[in-house]
């Protein structure tokens, strides 16, 4: 076999770098949507590589629900400092205070869906014409239909039945004033690819991904962390468990799994043996069969 081929991880990396460079070339004011989760961290790492030796040319935008893990915010601030990048924060609390959105009520209330308004407001206010996300097609069936360059109309909406065809590696980011694009450089990566890449590249990630002791409550098949926002149901009991998080979202909806994996190597091994999908621990996706599709249509990440 000739040596002139790339292994799968190098090919995925090269594809993502190509997409990031296309975004930079085709848009005026692109940002990276940064959640503090592993996927947006990997995208940020790839952006650093894509433009080296130049500095990362994108601002990072964080939609702050106010229901964060403190560890995520600290990680975000450290990374911003290290990159010398600009941070834009869209605040869900501000959207609530301004009456743009209303807080959900009840025990299962979350701010997950409220983020859509804050995100679209921040995109408009900052004149952003492309928001780069860490979404992957393997995550969920609506995401399996996403393009690398995904059009959003002037209401920020996604029309999955009327998407632009995307052939070869020719990306069409042309748009009218007020519309924007979402770009997904790691579309073709799986959860396993992301972990293998984090391991290979030695990328730092928030401590929440590693096994640690935490006070948690058993709810909808996963360990929900105790926080000031958690309302205990009758019969629910706070216990201390050694857990880690497989994905990071709001502290109110992100469930942990019991685990002893405290290094990236151990996590990668654990993920390879997992028999549950990664978003199985996210109550935001469990609301209905098309929960993700419905949110995405409205402008969700």
């Amino acid at each position: 076999m000739s040596k002139y081929y790339l292994n799968y991880l190098d090919e995925l990396e090269s594809e993502a770098i190509f997409v990031l460079r296309e975004v930079w070339a085709q848009f005026e004011n692109p940002v990276i949507l940064f959640s503090g989760g592993k996927d947006s961290i990997v995208v940020t790492h790839l952006a650093r590589k894509a433009f080296y030796p130049s500095k990362i040319p994108f601002s990072l935008m964080h939609v702050d629900t106010g229901h964060n893990f403190p560890e995520t915010i600290q990680f975000r601030d450290n990374l911003i400092k290290e990159l010398g990048a600009n941070l834009i924060v869209g605040s869900v609390q501000e959207s609530i205070d301004q009456g743009r959105v209303a807080e959900e009520k009840g025990k299962n209330a979350t701010r997950n869906a409220l983020q859509i308004t804050t995100l679209l407001d921040a995109i408009e206010a900052n004149k952003i014409d492309c928001a780069i996300g860490g979404g992957r097609r393997d995550e969920e069936k609506a995401r399996a239909k996403e393009r690398f360059f995904s059009h959003r109309d002037d209401f920020g909406q996604w029309d999955p039945k009327n998407q632009r065809p995307e052939l070869w590696n020719i990306f069409n980011g042309k748009h009218f004033e007020g519309e924007h694009f979402r770009a997904f450089p790691i579309s073709n990566w799986t959860e396993m690819d992301v972990w293998n890449y984090i391991k290979r590249e030695n990328i730092s990630i928030p401590s929440l991904y590693f096994a640690h002791e935490r006070e948690v409550v058993w709810r909808s098949n996963s360990w929900i962390p105790k926080s000031e926002f958690l309302i205990l149901d009758e019969g629910e009991e706070v216990v201390t468990k050694k857990i880690r998080f497989r994905t990071l979202g709001d502290i109110t909806i992100t469930g942990g799994i019991e685990s002893d994996a405290d290094t990236v190597e151990k996590i990668a091994t654990e993920v390879a043996a997992m028999r549950q999908t990664e978003r199985g621990n996210r109550s935001d996706d469990k609301r209905s069969e098309s929960a993700m599709e419905d949110r995405k249509r409205e402008g969700y990440f």
Partner: peptide
Amino acid sequence: GLRDEREQGITIDVAYRYFT
């Protein structure tokens, strides 16, 4: 895939799937 596809029992658009 999408809700319309499930309801009509057809594939309309390209869907990407992964395995290793």
